[in-house]
Design a binder for these strands. Structure first.
Lengths: 337, 337
DNA sequence: CTGAAAGCGCTTACAG
DNA sequence: CTGAAAGCGCTTACAG
């Protein structure tokens, strides 16, 4: 029952050929004689042979696995964004026989990630949501290890990344609010130390100026639901008793918008009649909340697939020049604005 | 810059000892002489040595990785449940140096999972949400490969699983509705081919009988938001013009409840004034929806941690008898009921 | 097209 | 407590 696993050696003996030939058949080398190949294939199936990946990795110097690194469990793991990334990555790496290893970088986790790559347990990593203080992008690039960032790096550095045009997305939101008749717009921003927070605010401001709108209300959020609610409270507190102050609101993430909507409602403001609201991401909270959110869509699955492709490419050809990819956002119109 | 990685051999040469001794230091074998250990440690740090895991795996016959297998991407990956499982598993395996590999079983994926274990890329797997037709539990147990199910198996079999007492949870929901004064209760069930769907319905029925309530309304759902909405529509269609018919509703998952709530609202039924609603899971939709959901909590993170422990235990000692763990659910009271 | 042989980088009895 | 040596199971030049 629980015998030793079958090795290449045994298959070779059964087939009456050398280990090299079996290896060639297993790896689909084209030059093997047809008859011989069939003999070997039969031997493989009768013995129930399964190649030992560790042995292969040892000689090929490939782990056959890439890492998906998320910051400090708490936040990202429960973010709907996460599942979308995984479902974008898997279809590109699986046909290549590459595994996806999940990690988070809680305290001490940074070094662990670097070690995993140095120990060749991981051929490279995809890094999600790097905050300002995250040392990982630099740690990895300095060791010349393959890495792809899921967003523009906080400080300019020579690193591959995939991003959506954040500023253009915010512009789309403002254009839509204006087209729907809004004249006084406000925004709940993301955390301003994050590139996404900065870029979306910049795009918002540029679009406001382009449309010749009056100075907008700006309140900083943090991409969390609670942060969205808190920001919305500050926003409505600044309004007059009838709610005058703004008739269009751009919330820089859907999750924050789900926190902001109930605040507006409790203040007696109807969405979209009194205030039109546009979110960002087009994540699942956008369709779950009430009313469903008009929002700027990031093609997260496509972006994730691209990250995987870039990473694999980098692993194969480490000497190729570094390149990044920026996707265009689109607007998804629902009931909120 | 891009030199060959340092090997044990080189560390040994630098430290002036044998490879065996370096190996012992790296692996923390206690019997190494203190002075020697320090010499080796210095050599390790000056050379920047990182052990090659493939080489180690080859001799230890351990991949140092376990798989988390999710069914057909579409559904589970975007389920909030998924992130909770990951955050439960990671803290137990990381200190052990074990990696978490993510996989889904789309068409053909079953064999891939089995192969990954047979090829020793994975020491064992945690299987989520197995449906009736899922061949994986049997495939794996028949090959005597380590596996832990995230729920009771559909058909009785000798396999390790971790579950919550589903029926008891449904009972908690009914007890609560009754305590709040409900007299006519209804339920939206899960898919009845899934054990969780069956068990929650059974628990619901038993509790209804125990309280001496009249025959309840029962409509089958499928654990999706849309399925919850559709089931709720069928439920309200059966009510009289004033909404008489039921004053308490147990929805067998929070996600379905988020689909059901708007249907009730559009029908003019206030929650909780006209109908009290209790969900199941205590997942993020429960706090995001309006009103926030009273729900039966599954301690998913704890359950996931337990799965990881059981799996690791099984990998270490394959001959130990199989055991399973069932957790007790609790009720979380919010605004919906 | 095929095989003999070296080698990938570790761990682990086995002596001493 | 330490070292010499075998061995884990593959792949891949190198001959032929």
């Amino acid at each position: 029952m629980d015998r030793r696993p079958v090795t290449l050696e045994e298959v070779a003996r059964v087939a009456g050929v050398s280990r090299a030939t079996v290896s060639r058949v297993v790896n689909g080398v084209a030059t093997v004689d047809r008859e011989l190949r069939q003999v070997v294939e039969k031997a493989i199936s009768t013995t129930g042979y399964a190649p030992n990946r560790a042995a292969r990795s040892l000689v090929t110097r490939r782990a056959g696995a890439i890492g998906l690194v998320l910051p400090d469990e708490g936040r990202t793991l429960h973010d709907p964004y996460f599942g979308r990334v995984v479902s974008g990555v898997l279809p590109v790496i699986r046909p290549l026989g590459v595994q996806l290893v999940l990690t988070t970088t809680d305290p001490g986790g940074h070094q662990e990630v670097v070690d995993d790559v140095r120990q060749r347990r991981l051929d490279g990593v995809i890094l999600i949501h790097t905050h300002d203080a995250d040392p990982l992008p630099r740690l990895l690039t300095e060791s010349n290890l393959p890495v792809v960032l899921a967003a523009r790096p906080v400080r300019p550095m020579s690193i591959t990344y995939v991003d959506v045009d954040q500023a253009a997305g915010a512009g789309l939101a403002v254009d839509h609010l204006v087209a729907r008749g809004c004249r006084r717009v406000a925004t709940v921003t993301g955390p301003l130390e994050a590139p996404a927070g900065q870029d979306r605010l910049r795009g918002f401001r540029e679009a406001v100026a382009r449309h010749g709108l009056p100075e907008p209300l700006v309140v900083e959020g943090d991409f969390s639901r609670e942060g969205g609610a808190a920001a919305a409270r500050r926003l409505v507190a600044g309004r007059g008793p009838l709610g005058e102050g703004f008739d269009g609101l751009f919330v820089a993430s859907d999750l924050m918008a789900t926190g902001a909507l109930p605040v507006l409602r409790h203040r007696g403001l109807r969405v979209p009649e009194d205030v039109k609201v546009v979110g960002f991401d087009d994540s699942s909270p956008a369709v779950e909340c009430d009313p469903p959110l008009t929002t700027v869509r990031q093609p997260v699955e496509d972006m994730a697939a691209e990250m995987a492709r870039l990473l694999v490419e980098r692993v194969e050809r480490p000497d190729r020049p570094i390149s990044s990819v920026v996707f265009a956002p689109t607007l998804v119109v629902r009931q909120s604005g």
